[in-house]
Simulated assay, not measured.
Amino acid sequence: MLKNKMENQAESKGNSSQYSLVYRFFRKVIFRLLYLFFCLFPLNKKKILFASDSRTDLSGNFEFVYQTLKRKNVNYQYHFFLKESTRAYKTYWEMVRLAFHLATAKFILLDDFYPMVYPLKIRKGADLIQLWHAVGAFKTFGYSRVGLPGGPDPHSLSHRNYTKVIVSSENVAKHYAEGFGISENRVFATGIPRTDVFFDQAYQVKVKEELYRKYPILSKKKVIMFAPTFRGAGQQSAYYPKDYLHLEKLYHALHDEYVFLFKMHPFVKDYWQIPEEYKDFFYDISHYREINDLLFISDLLITDYSSVCFEFALLNKPMIFYSPDVEEYIATRDFYYKYDSFIPGPLARTLDELIETIQNKDFKMEKIETFVDYFFDHTDGKSSDRVVDQLIVDTDSK
C-alpha cells in the first residue's frame, strides 16, 4: 500500500484542546469562513484532493483511483488529508490547509462519512465525488433510515452536497440516491475500484504468497473468515456481541479441518482474547486493513449484515450468514431487500446451526450467480478506469 502522503502530519499530544471552546469554534465557524474566503481564489482544475476520516494510508478505492491516474500519466496535483476516524485531532494548521484545498480543488474525493465537508457549498465547476467504501446495497443507511432508531435528522446536511457517487450496479443507484439524499442522476454505475483485484490473477497469487509466508498455518488447512458488521449507532459506539460465539465449541467441532480468522469491522476496537489452548485454530487479524486480500485465502466466509458478501460472491466461494439477532436487526436497521431471500448463502440463527451447516457443507451455492448478476453491472476488472475516465478525465476536458 502507498504510505500516507498527508501534509503536515504533526499531531497534538494532548487531545484536551479538541474539546475546548476555542477549538470547537474554530472547527465549526472559522473553518467555514476560511473556506468561503478561499473560494475567492481561482479554482485549480488540475488539483485532486483525497480526504478521509477512516484511514491513515492511501488504500481501498483511493489507492486504485490514484494508481490509475498515475498509470494514465495525466497531469494532476495530488493532496491528501487522511485520518483514522472522525474523532482524530486535526491541528489548526491542518484545518486551514484543508479549507484551502477544499475551496480550490477541482476534484474532491471521499471514501466514507466526512463531516467537515457537509456544511460547505461546493463551488461551481468543482466536484465532490463519493467513492463509497461499500459494495452493493444491503442494510439501509443514511436518509433511508429516517424515522428508524438511530436514523438521521431529515433536515441534516450530511451527504447532500455530493456531485457524484459511484455504485456497483444500476439496480442499487436508487438506494444510494435515497441514502445520501441526492438525485439519482448524480449516481454512476462505474463499478467499485477496489473490486478490480478480483479479476487480477497475478495480484491474487502475490497476496496469497505474502499471507502464507506471514501465516504458514493458512496454507495447511481450510480457512474460515469470520467478518461480521458492527452493532451500535456508529463509529463511536460500535461493538460486536461476543457471546454469539463459544470458542471452545467451535474449536472442538472444526479445528481438525479448519483455521478460524477473526476480521472485525474497523469500528470495533475490542479485539478477541484467544485462550492459549486455542491459538492453533483462532487468529485475530482485524488489524489487517484490506479485507479483500484476506478473501483470496479464505475458503468459507461467515458474516451477517456486512457488505463483504458482495466481494466474496465474485470469487464464487461459499458463505454462511450467522445472524442470531436477525429479527431485532431488521426491526431497528432494516434492509433494502428481504433478508432471508436476498442473502447468497444459508442463514444460521444459532451456533449449533452454524456448526452443522459447516460440517454438512450445505452452502446453497446456486444462489451466488444470480446475486452477482444483479449487484454487478461490470465484472471485467476495469472499474478504476471507468471512475477515472468518466468522472475525472472526461470532466476535466469540459
Rank of each mutant, 00 (worst) to 15 (best):
K106Q: 15
R386A: 01
D304I: 01
Q390W: 09
D377E: 07
E356S: 12
V146H: 04
F100E: 05
Q18K: 15
T350P: 02
R386D: 01
T229M: 05
T195K: 02
Y258E: 07
L43W: 07
Y337W: 14
V205D: 12
F38A: 10
K220C: 09
F376W: 13
H265P: 09
K90C: 06
N360W: 04
R24M: 12
P318K: 03
I297P: 02
Y176T: 11
D153N: 15
A348H: 01
I129T: 04
F31E: 00
T163S: 14
D280N: 14
Q273C: 11
Y203P: 04
Y212F: 15
K398F: 12
L300T: 01
T379H: 03
P266Y: 07
I330P: 00
S307C: 10
S12F: 14
G345W: 02
A51W: 09
I182P: 00
L300C: 04
V326Y: 08
Y23S: 09
D284Q: 05
K121R: 11
P115L: 01
L157F: 14
K317F: 07
I182T: 02
L49Y: 00
V117H: 05
H155P: 02
V22G: 12
D396Q: 13
P152A: 08
K174C: 08
K249P: 05
N185E: 15
I129M: 07
G147H: 11
C39A: 11
W272E: 15
I192V: 14
G151L: 02
D112F: 13
A173F: 06
G60W: 09
K364P: 03
